[in-house]
Amino acid sequence: MIPTPQAKLCGVGLRAPHHHEWATRRPTCAVLEIHAENYFASGGAIPALLADLRRDYPLSIHGVGLGLGSSAPMDTVHLQQLKALVTRYEPTRVSEHLAWSTYNGMHHNDLLPLPYTDESLMHMVSRVTQLQDYLQRPVLIENLSSYVGFEDSTLNECEFLAALAARSGCSILLDINNLYINACNHGFDPKKFFDALHKTPVDEIHLAGHTIEIIGEIPMRLDTHGSAVCESVWQLYREALQHFGPTLTIIEWDTDLPALEVLLKEAECAEKITLESYANAN
């Protein structure tokens, strides 16, 4: 269904320092995104707050700790906790990453890049299928920001994502900031990414800020989620909307968190671009 201009599509990440303000002010927002692992607790004030907010806001539950691409078996306790969360809060979207995170029983608690090979693809298809079967609902898989590539990769990331979506039935969470970072760090044209995904469902978009640091004498863009969305990413977002149409969009901000008002203004900006995109398409 093509959303009408009246249907707001842009939201922000719900983060702990803003909990009180959300609880008391209830600002207008199309959707709240939560990081699943921060709400696994079965009792206490946090689940109570989320249940309260859920009455007024749709939720998008975004997992960051499952490590779907890990060669190690999936953590069944983690899966159970995720399912309990999904069952309790009935989110509009459930998503995870195209990443791995565990090896030999140790969890790196980071989103680590996969080589894009046939073996990895089969592995991810199997894992995403397992996740969807367990949750009994489709999930979205997010493209990753990465700082290294693998010589053994036989596909690029967008080909990998398109094949993953086609074979598993998942849809894509397109992080425009991640795409921009990768395009700069690895040297490719991000618009080709959109072309490669033209038959793939993109059901959510993320926007965030990043920084530039010198790593080994080379300037690299790092996915810090600690600043405003930069103009280049806004521009890429405009172009993404031309390809994929109006799409649920989340502003993510996780470090050096500013006042909630700053996040809401970023969401307003995304909303304005969405409306312009809608007007242009009609």
Binding site: S71, W100, T117, S120, V148, G216
Partner: peptide, 30 residues
């Protein structure tokens, strides 16, 4: 294989010697 790539990647992250280049980011994040 995937498992070998992840083993090698983990070893760089866990090593007390700080790597040069982009792997430094993952070493630091851990």
């Amino acid at each position: 294989t995937l498992i070998n790539i992840q083993r090698a990647f983990s070893e760089v992250i866990l090593c007390t010697t700080v790597p040069n280049g982009p792997m430094l980011v993952y070493h630091h994040n851990y």
